[in-house]
Simulated assay, not measured.
Amino acid sequence: MSNGQLQLPKTIMPIIIIGIIAIIFLSKSTVTIDAGEAGVLWKRFAGGVVTDEAPLGEGFHIVAPWNEVIVYEVRQQELYEKMKVLSSNGLDILLETSTWYLPKANELGKLHQQIGENYLERIIKPALRSAARSVVGRYTPEQLYSSKRDVIQNEIFEETRIILEDQFIQLNEVLVRDVTLPPTIKDAIERKLKQEQESLEYEFRLVTATKEAEKQIIEAQGKADANRILSASLTDKILQDKGIEATIKLSESTNSKVIVIGSGKDGLPLILGNQ
């Protein structure tokens, strides 16, 4: 002890220095990978990006402090895009899409080495835009607005998937959320669709009326044929017998008073009176 100052033992300082170094070493050597993520290992003195091994999975990992771990999200992600494309006749179409994608976890090393962390901007967006322009350019505004929406959606997905096939990306779906046409074109299409609908309704009513008329003609013809056959089969004797039967039934009625005067046409009696 000199001049009132406390002197530390000579062995303390090396221990403190070693402790500080150990803390720095551990802080640089530990990596925690969260759920839905995976890590690409980059080795400074052993060839750079590791591509022949599986990426680091979720959890706690210890790596050499001179190496680096690049963390990627490997869950499904969504890309919302609004883009202007041209129809087959050169009109501007505003297309809104949602793309579901994720990096292939077992190929993260190659993705990082060949494309990098910004793979969304570098390959997915350009691929989607190229496919959308190619597909939409094959259709008219009328087709885009009405019947071809599902077909266009499937074609954009297939063309985008082909472009990304060797880019270490898994494409799950491309959804066409909305197709916006120029207002004048949209109004013209809606008027045309309305006219077509009215024409179809008129044709339906016309066909229905024609069928009803044909039905009535057939029924009338059937009744006429039945009456003709019945008339041809009736003889004077049959008519006389029927008249007699009817007269007898009428004479037996308690509500009738029978007065026979001479004879009626065809020899049938005349019955008069009623109570």
Score class of each variant (00 low, 15 high):
161 R>F: 10
79 L>Y: 06
33 I>L: 11
267 G>D: 15
59 G>R: 05
119 Y>D: 02
45 F>S: 08
170 Q>N: 15
198 E>P: 00
190 E>I: 14
252 E>D: 13
264 G>D: 05
195 Q>H: 13
103 P>Y: 08
192 K>V: 03
189 I>Y: 00
95 L>I: 08
274 N>S: 12
10 K>V: 12
257 K>W: 06
67 N>Q: 05
133 R>P: 01
247 T>L: 13
198 E>N: 04
209 A>F: 04
151 V>G: 04
35 A>N: 15
134 S>L: 12
235 T>N: 07
234 L>I: 14
49 V>K: 04
175 L>M: 09
273 G>H: 06
44 R>C: 03
189 I>M: 00
171 L>I: 10
161 R>C: 02
167 Q>C: 06
76 Q>L: 11
137 G>V: 04
156 I>T: 00
133 R>Y: 01
120 L>G: 02
225 D>C: 02
43 K>G: 01
274 N>L: 13
241 D>W: 11
13 M>D: 13
70 I>S: 13
239 L>T: 09
133 R>V: 02
226 A>T: 07
175 L>A: 12
148 K>C: 02
125 K>W: 06
142 E>L: 08
196 E>L: 12
116 G>W: 08
5 Q>I: 14
48 G>W: 03
62 I>H: 00
106 N>C: 06
1 M>F: 09
238 I>T: 07
206 L>F: 11
270 L>N: 11
187 D>A: 14
221 Q>T: 10
47 G>R: 06
132 A>T: 00
217 I>A: 12
250 L>K: 12
242 K>V: 12
82 K>P: 00
163 I>A: 12
191 R>V: 13
5 Q>P: 01
132 A>R: 00
46 A>E: 10
13 M>K: 15
144 L>V: 01
80 Y>S: 11
263 S>A: 04
17 I>E: 03
267 G>L: 10
